[in-house]
Design a protein around this nucleic acid. Structure first.
Length: 584
RNA sequence: GGGGCUGUAGCUCAGUUGGUUAGAGUGCCGGUCUGUCACACCGGAGGUCGCGGGUUCGAGUCCCGUCAGCCCCGCCA
């Protein structure tokens, strides 16, 4: 490997293979930077030490050509060393050069100069083979490998065994749209690609594999984002006879072992725990970014008495007055506060009220309603800023969550830590919309032990025995304790509006597995791609996946999807609709 | 499904109020060059201004449509 050659190898003869990364042709002398996965090494070619055939060949070879170079490692002349290169003390003086594969001129550069911009992402994806040669993407995929290996080692050490589950599975009636695969043998019938191995891993629990894991590929046919691909990888984990704390302990060890192979991430265990209700109250979101210490406060009592119709009507309408106190925030300009308000509005707030306190009173929209004692009631000192939202929690929580991060960013608050891990527990079982319940996580989560009765009386208020892992405000995984009792499972599916016939048709195989004597079990799944993205500091999932799809779910390098012939369709018992027929 | 941004040489970009032959850097090709490391210097080739339509005496530039990429909303149990 070229990157490992050092002064210790002086005068050693060696044969090195790699790509011509960069050339410097001085006429008499030629210098190459030879590249392989390990790094770069300068090859020097000159008439005094290089055979003439090889030297003349060297003049015409272009970058990205694959060569084999035989020569002798030499210390570079004093003053000719390159401190920016790991191998910059030495060079390989080439004796002979053989061309292993001459490359056409690359469409996009592999080498980027210090002031060069990356090519357009479309071109990077179209010419992925070249883009993947760049050290940035190589490093990301190497890190991905190390993280997966660390997780595998740790789970293996904990007694988990890896089991593969089918890629051709049964369509799921709820959740994301399935990718469907037509059956040739059974015309008119379809498999689906798994959205996750959820049901299979529960069946494995019933089968007695009491600690299971899988680096599992999952597929969801939904529109994409920078942090969402149609196929993605989960570290899927499940175990029998567990309580949530067991899962937390194991997953903390997995995360800690991954942090060990990372240069940038730390994961001191145990991670803090917080209930969903507490997260919503203090941070307005179920995935709070705890790098920021700001917390939402309830000022319904403190400000509800002000002669301010907006506040009073919010409270009488069943809402609350909540907000954020920024110590020293009075130094923010009106423009900065407006920028914060713009983000709050984007998140659904009708507006944001604010007041600054100074030595000689206050300023801002709230100040003319406030007396000296009101500032005290908010805990404000001179120089502080308060941002307030009033209304129903369903509106103010998301906007205050955004306000909190926007304010921290505008005020340039120092993060309390660089790596903020958090368990959020006890999510609601259901989301309610117009009286219709949908599973807030998935329909297999067990109800919180304290809320079992609520399933009969007020299911919308029932909490689940579920949890998310949150890192710096990003959800990295979620899981829960499952229903191992088929009647409990049936009850939840009924609450979701499924008929008994539907339940049998769609989930009968799961229920029969539960009835066979399934142990209590639970687990979780970690989003592997997001973990690599955050651990590598990448801005897009596309930079941590070898062959990603575009936002239109297209593969530009190999060009998929494609039309197929009528013959192939006929063999599957399919025909395509003509233009205009699609929605008929 | 909706909103926004972008699309000019292989690549990265500039292109004035709509005006005559569309430029730069880099890469590529040719030449000079024995210590370069973004080598330097000289010369050259290279353009369906994403595509289609419209307005205009005249469109890279204005208008409409469309395609592609990216970001966001919806969606993602």
């Amino acid at each position: 490997m070229v990157g490992g050659v050092t002064a210790a190898n002086e005068n050693e003869s060696m044969r090195l293979v790699g790509w011509i990364h960069r050339r410097r042709d001085l006429g008499g002398l030629v210098f190459w930077d030879l590249r392989d996965r390990s790094g770069l090494l300068q090859i020097s070619l000159g008439p005094e030490w290089t055979e003439s055939d090889s030297l003349s060949r060297a003049h015409r070879l272009g970058s990205e050509t694959v060569v084999s170079v035989e020569g002798v490692v030499k210390l570079r002349p004093a003053g000719k060393r390159n401190p920016d290169l790991a191998t910059g003390e030495v060079e390989l003086q080439a004796v002979t050069v053989a061309v292993l594969n001459e490359a056409r001129t690359p469409e996009i550069p592999v080498y980027l100069g210090p002031e060069d911009e990356l090519p357009a992402e479309e071109l990077r994806l179209r010419h992925r083979v070249l883009d993947l040669r760049r050290s940035e993407l190589q490093d990301n995929l190497v890190l991905r490998h190390k993280l997966i290996m660390a997780a595998r080692r740790e789970l293996d050490a904990l007694g988990f065994i890896e089991v593969e589950t089918p890629i051709l599975t049964k369509p799921t009636p709820e959740g994301a749209r399935d990718f469907l695969v037509p059956s040739r043998v059974h015309k008119g019938q379809f498999y689906a690609l798994p959205q996750s191995p959820q049901i299979y891993k529960q069946i494995l629990m019933a089968a007695g594999f009491d600690r299971y894991f899988q680096i599992a590929r999952c597929f969801r046919d939904e529109d994409l984002r920078a942090d969402r691909q149609p196929e993605f990888t989960q570290i899927d984990v499940e175990a029998s006879f567990v309580v949530p704390e067991d899962v937390f302990g194991w997953m903390e060890r997995v995360i800690a072992s991954m942090a060990d192979v990372s240069d940038s991430v730390e994961a001191p265990t145990p991670f803090p725990r917080m209930t969903h209700a507490e997260a919503m109250e203090r941070y307005g979101t179920d995935r709070p970014d705890l790098r920021c210490g700001l917390e939402i406060q309830d000022w319904t009592t403190a400000l509800g008495g002000l002669e301010f119709g907006l506040l009073q009507s919010a409270v009488s309408g069943g809402g609350r007055i909540r907000g954020l106190l920024l110590q020293g925030g009075a130094s923010l300009s009106r423009k900065q506060i407006e920028a914060i308000e713009a983000e709050a509005k984007e998140a659904g707030a009708p507006g944001l009220l604010w007041t600054k306190r100074s030595d000689d009173g206050g300023s801002g929209p709230l100040s003319r309603f406030m007396a000296e004692g009101d500032y005290e009631a908010l805990g404000m000192a001179a120089g502080d800023l308060v941002l307030v939202a009033a209304g129903l929690d369903a509106v103010t929580s998301p906007s205050l969550a955004v306000t909190r991060l926007a304010a921290a960013s505008q005020a340039k608050l120092k993060p309390t830590t660089e790596c903020a891990w958090l368990w959020v527990t006890d999510f609601p079982m259901f989301d309610e919309s117009d009286g219709v319940l949908t599973a807030s996580h998935h329909p297999f989560v067990h109800v919180h032990p304290e809320d079992a009765d609520l399933l009969d009386t007020d299911p919308a208020r029932a909490r689940a025995q579920s949890y998310d892992l949150v890192y710096n405000g990003v959800e990295l995984g979620s899981g829960g304790i499952r229903n191992h009792d088929s009647n409990a499972q049936r009850k939840i599916l009924r609450l979701l509006g499924l008929s008994d016939a539907d339940i049998e048709l769609k989930f009968g195989f799961l229920l029969r597995a539960l009835e066979s004597g399934a142990p209590p079990h639970g687990g979780m799944a970690l989003g592997m791609d997001r973990i690599v993205m955050l651990f590598s500091g990448s801005k897009s999932l596309r930079d941590v996946v070898a062959f990603p799809k575009t936002t239109a779910a297209r593969a530009l390098f190999e060009e998929a999807p494609v039309h197929v012939s009528e013959q192939e369709l006929a063999e599957l018992g399919l025909r395509t609709l003509g233009a205009g027929e699609q929605h008929g």
